[in-house]
Amino acid sequence: MKNSTLHLKLNGNEKTFLIDPADTLLDFLRETAQLTGTKEGCGKGECGACTVLLDGKPVNSCLVMAVQAEGRSVTTIEGIKSDKRFDALRASFLEHGASQCGACTPGFIISSAALLTDNPDPTDKEIRSALEGNLCRCTGYLKIFSAVKHAAENKGER
């Protein structure tokens, strides 16, 4: 039952929602906030498809209760899309063929965005390590690594 209020900064905007306190952050984002770009892959924090930024840090939104986001900042793929800092990252995913079926892609973009924000010049090892919590079943990961690497190298050019 939606009988609890949630105030948060969602994709840069202060918002208030009426929510079901039993909802996870993922349920809230997809069903109440209608932000369906965040995907559910397993519901158990094992695949990373539902990764969002909570106060700038990547989390599995299926493992966080919606009420835990009270007063905090949440960024979803919809927020990344309208943030110019990540245009090069998104373009690089396209150019490198890093998205096939796409179900894991928003999660990978979020994890990569978090990495590049903290560490603008990651090594190959750091890229792999930042993406270890995200499963992809289509690409074999290599084109994703190249996309992130390339986005880091070209950050000033776009």
């Binding site: 770009g37 998104r90 892609t105 973009i109």
Partner: peptide, 21 residues
């Protein structure tokens, strides 16, 4: 040649509608 995948644009933006969306 290797033209870009048009279907990937919306997937990358989280705008592609899968059935649960």
């Amino acid at each position: 040649t290797s033209p870009l995948r048009e279907d990937a644009r919306v997937k990358i933006d989280g705008a592609a509608k899968y059935v649960d969306d």
